[in-house]
Design a protein around this nucleic acid. Structure first.
Lengths: 356, 356
DNA sequence: TTGTACGCGTTATCAC
DNA sequence: GTGATAACGCGTACAA
């Protein structure tokens, strides 16, 4: 008899793929609602019954169907994370930061790599909205012509899907929280450090123009130079260095010209690498022939030759704070929108020469 | 009159949050079925009606509810990606690789960072199953005692949720596809290169014992040494170097002993950095005092002092292939399970001295 | 404490 | 080509 039951059970185990609360209910000759109550341990179910239900659920390999749950409750315990370009080392610590906040709360995240393409971003936002994410963490991109996805983000907000910008913002969207770096102060620190060491012929290499972060860094650069009475040479401002080629080629030509800068400020980790590689390839010595101030601080900046003086942003904190804000907005416990601005710090290493 | 209609529309726009196919249907005085057919552009709906429906959908800011859709179809267009530790630079190119495969097919992915914790992995697998992912890409972890989540992965497979291992596998699960590196050959290349340069006192630093990849690399190391008649000194095998401290401390003591290796093989990017930093802190010169062969090849290995000779694995390919296999198993177009093994290549730079 | 009945938004199966 | 109806699995108001 027992054997027979075993056979039956194993048979059912293989035949019917997934157990539902109905299966548990009929197994125990009770109603599905009791099962539902027991599993979501709400009140109104006797301890003995509850235990029986939990046992049966275990035995039947019951796994809840969150699609059904979501359909009912409009909650998916999922958020969307839109990243500008996943190959940026920035996202290692950043994701680690948000994960530490999301996991304890039972939230998952969907990663959307838009590769700086705002059309792709559009597609991903739609997918996220369809999917029913409860919030979106995003570093928005822009088209060449300055177009962006503000309309779609507004649609999200209208649907009560909170959006939080990190790293970048979309100007004109004041009602969306953001966690950013004080980019001007960051660059100012770099410029100050260079000036203090006697450098006044300063160049800067920048990623795609139009992106908020980049514009801020450029503005910060010009402001700092003005403040310190350093002449800004527009030829030494290298823009739209979006890939290795578009960074190294212009940099090379600038460094070859007879009127050339004696220091270069980088504006992200990828550019750090390209700049160092380019300079080295040209046979120039760092920092004797050229001083360099890096940005973003991958752990390896310490190990390169020479150790790279770097403007470090608190990447993991950005992730943690952004995720925390998003969750509190999802909870609805936050009325005001937050605009958190974090400070960068300068890590002095060996890539800036002392001229004075 | 027109004005009035506008007001109505704007009112409805703000009052009713989300339009459903029913709203579109009643707007056009047709049935929801036709709307469904039109939107999923199936057959059986006249072109004129279809256009009207598409227009109305646009006008009402209709966004499909995939929870409802999933409930019906059991398809979520979502897969789960389980990563051992998201801070590993490995995952930059890896994720980029899988994204290029998933995006064109309309698939999203949920990232689950288990931080080498198999209990956390357990939780995440359950969440993924509940969520209704159509497949799982995973690099499984193990507990101290060798316990792992094979049971849960089997449950996924039983539910027709394909699982693909990448980087690591769980031994004894032959019916699951995998994309891995030929770890033995990889290490063999490193050992060969060292031997060719006259090094026969070889050490190796390894991450957590028990993990498939690590065991293979250790096996490969011993095999290679045996093959080349190099004596293996167990003291020079540093195991369980799971964080900076547990790598640098034992390494330091090994290097301080009077019987010390003259070359060290690293087994991941994180360890590359720790090893170089430790050696440098001890005041040893690379490669004169100690030769180093790195692993994994972050782009910055080229820039460190000295440029690091590295065993490079084709990370992006691993991602692409794993995602491709997973999708084909989801499609059900693949009967056989695939076991793809990729080869590493040795990038010779300057961190190995020539003794002969 | 427990059970009944309904609906969430969608697709699929029928009729017409 | 189109519309009515049922069902997917779950939560919940309400009745018992």
């Amino acid at each position: 008899m027992k054997n027979n039951a075993n056979v039956c059970e194993r048979l059912r185990y293989y035949v019917m793929k997934k157990a539902t609360i109905k299966d548990i209910a009929s197994e125990l000759n009770i109603s599905p609602s009791s099962v539902s109550r027991a599993l979501s341990d709400g009140p109104g179910v006797s301890p003995s019954l509850k235990e029986a239900i939990l046992n049966a659920a275990e035995r039947l390999n019951y796994i809840p169907n969150s699609s059904a749950k979501s359909l009912k409750t409009m909650k998916t315990q999922t958020i969307g994370l839109i990243v500008s370009d996943i190959r940026n080392p920035f996202f290692l610590d950043f994701m680690s930061g948000i994960e530490t906040v999301l996991f304890p709360r039972g939230y998952k995240f969907i990663v959307c790599d838009i590769g700086e393409d705002f059309e792709k971003e559009r597609v991903y936002i739609k997918w996220l909205l369809e999917h029913g994410v409860e919030g979106i963490l995003t570093s928005p991109s822009q088209g060449e012509d300055g177009r962006n996805n503000s309309k779609l983000y507004r649609e999200a907000v209208r649907r009560n899907i909170p959006v939080v910008f990190y790293d970048r913002i979309l100007e004109g969207m004041e009602r969306i929280s953001s966690v950013t770096l004080d980019n001007r102060q960051a660059i100012l620190q770099g410029v100050l450090h260079l000036r203090d060491n006697g450098h006044e012929k300063l160049g800067i290499v920048l990623h795609k123009r139009g992106i908020y972060t980049i514009e801020e860094r450029l503005r910060g650069f010009k402001e700092a130079c003005n403040m310190l009475a350093i002449e800004v040479n527009e030829d030494w401002i290298i823009e739209n260095a979006v890939d290795a080629e578009r960074a190294s080629l212009p940099l090379e030509s600038v460094l070859k010209s007879d009127k050339r800068p004696d220091a270069i400020i980088s504006t992200n980790q990828f550019l750090n690498e390209v700049i160092v590689a380019t300079v080295r390839r040209m046979g120039l010595k760092i920092p004797d022939d050229l001083s360099i101030v890096g940005f973003d601080d991958h752990s390896m900046n310490e190990l390169i030759d020479p150790p790279l003086t770097t403007i470090r942003q608190p990447v993991k904190d950005i992730g943690r704070i952004a995720a925390t804000i998003l969750l509190s907005e999802i909870d609805g416990t936050r009325g005001e929108k937050s605009k958190v601005v974090l400070k960068a710090e300068l890590l002095q290493r060996k890539s800036v020469s002392k001229l004075i």
